[in-house]
């Protein structure tokens, strides 16, 4: 019963990350939908803790990479080093060879380094010295980024943003949750004591179940209409790509699975749409990121078929 796993996961996670039930669900949906997650927020709201929580609860091995402006691609992917004993070069895998990679403050690194990670995300393998190296399965990247207007950041190019399935914001906790946070024990130590709720095998099972979830023709029609609305809107510079459409449907399936349903509702699509679209769409003219109000208007402009 896959749904049973999800409920236990969510419950355990919400004991660690307080008052962020919706964001946790989105994060799990992203994981289940085989996507990568982008968390955009100011420092200190628990981005890293969220990544740790996801890895810990699913029993996945986590590697954290702190992105800085002098980080090089080899620091992420690994490098071939001459082995004196055998007289050959041997590949030393970098931190990207993990099931969950936390790329902290990804927009502090140079575009060259960013793209090294992003290629690994897309291909789920890396190539070094003419050899391909498979990345572990499941492979899940959580990247955090500071709002781009902060000093010393390189905005991620659109083509690379497209590789993140969802973008979420954590935001400040509400007063109740913040009080509990202040009074309680350090989250990290709570987390370290936590045993995994499910193992990687169960996670893969969840991912398969989500992929197999029924999607009605009408819902496909709806997703198409929504995509088409983004492509014909005068306010937007360009519409959503087919990859974004596939991602939207996969995320909606995962969301329906988390909700315990055997079918996807338009509401699932509507819930996920802002998170799928926000980092991919830009306003025509000044190329600002699309505001939430525009996304809400887009949803309201498309009638259910």
């Amino acid at each position: 019963m896959p749904n049973f796993h999800v409920e236990r996961l969510l419950e355990a996670a919400s004991q660690i990350i307080l008052g962020k039930g919706h964001e946790l669900r989105l994060a799990f949906a992203c994981l289940i939908a085989h996507g990568h997650l982008l968390i955009e927020d100011v420092p200190g709201v628990g981005k890293t803790t969220l990544a740790h929580t996801l890895a810990q609860l699913t029993g996945l091995q986590l590697q954290r990479i702190q992105f800085t402006s002098d980080l090089l691609p080899a620091d992420i992917l690994g490098a071939s080093i001459f082995d004196r004993d055998t007289g050959t070069f041997r590949f030393h895998p970098g931190p990207v060879f993990a099931q969950v990679v936390l790329a902290d403050e990804i927009n502090r690194a140079t575009p060259k380094t960013q793209s090294a990670l992003l290629e690994a995300m897309e291909e789920r393998q890396i190539t070094a010295d003419g050899h391909s190296f498979e990345l572990p399965e499941p492979f899940f990247v959580i990247a955090t980024q500071n709002p781009t207007h902060q000093i010393g950041t390189f905005a991620l190019p659109e083509s690379q943003l497209d590789r993140f399935l969802l973008r979420i914001r954590l935001g400040y906790p509400d007063p109740m949750a913040e009080r509990a946070l202040l009074m309680g024990e350090d989250r990290r130590s709570v987390l370290e004591r936590r045993t995994p709720v499910i193992g990687p095998a169960e996670l893969v099972e969840l991912q398969r179940a989500a992929q197999a979830l029924h999607v009605a023709d009408r819902l496909i029609d709806y997703v198409q209409a929504l995509l088409s609305a983004t492509r014909h809107d005068a306010e937007l510079a360009a519409g959503l790509s087919p990859r974004a459409g596939l991602g939207l449907l996969a995320a909606a399936r995962a969301w329906a699975l988390i909700d315990g349903r055997d079918h996807v509702l338009p509401e699932d699509v509507q819930t996920l749409f802002p998170h799928v679209a926000a980092h991919r769409l830009h306003l025509a003219g000044d190329a600002r990121p699309v505001p939430a109000a525009t996304l809400a208007r887009l949803i309201q402009s498309v009638a259910l078929p």
Binding site: L265, P266, E267, Q270, I299, Q300, S301, A303, L304
Partner: peptide, 9 residues
């Protein structure tokens, strides 16, 4: 019902 409103909402 609003034209864009799903059954649950």
């Amino acid at each position: 019902r609003q034209p864009w409103e799903g059954p649950h909402d």
